[in-house]
């Protein structure tokens, strides 16, 4: 798979990253090289093998439905750049 500059710009936009021209060029080359390396896996015959979602062979880790104490409003908002009363305060969202 060939990574194009348009791919890099699209992914950067989705991630809300602003790239300079040089960065976009550098990353296009780097990402392409990374994918080319991973592409080696395609040489293996994986027919009939279940895709692995997790590296650890584990399943079914549950908690029971019991409400436990929360951390409190001030702790919750401690790292907020801006707060008002008990809320996180964010710039207006337009819809």
């Amino acid at each position: 798979m060939k990574i194009t500059r348009a791919d890099v710009e699209h992914v950067a936009k989705l991630a809300r990253l602003e790239l300079t021209d040089e960065e976009a060029a550098t990353f296009t080359g780097q990402m392409d090289a990374i994918l080319a390396y991973v592409d080696k896996l395609n040489e293996l015959d994986t027919a009939g093998i279940v895709p692995t979602a997790h590296a650890v062979p584990m399943e079914n880790s549950f908690r029971e439905d019991v409400a436990t104490p929360s951390i409190g409003i001030d702790n919750a908002l401690a790292n907020a750049p801006s707060r008002v009363e008990g809320f996180f305060r964010v710039p207006k969202v337009i819809e």
Binding site: R63, D65, V66, A67, T68, S70, I71, G72, I73, A76, L77, E85, G86, F87, F88
Partner: peptide, 26 residues
């Protein structure tokens, strides 16, 4: 349910803003 899907915070409706939060749901 009594608690959230991935943490133990209460799901009760109408509580004070952000009073039912923890590191997971934050």
């Amino acid at each position: 349910t009594n608690s959230k899907i991935f943490c133990g915070c209460s799901t009760k409706f109408g509580a004070a803003p952000n009073s039912q939060t923890c590191p997971v749901c934050l």
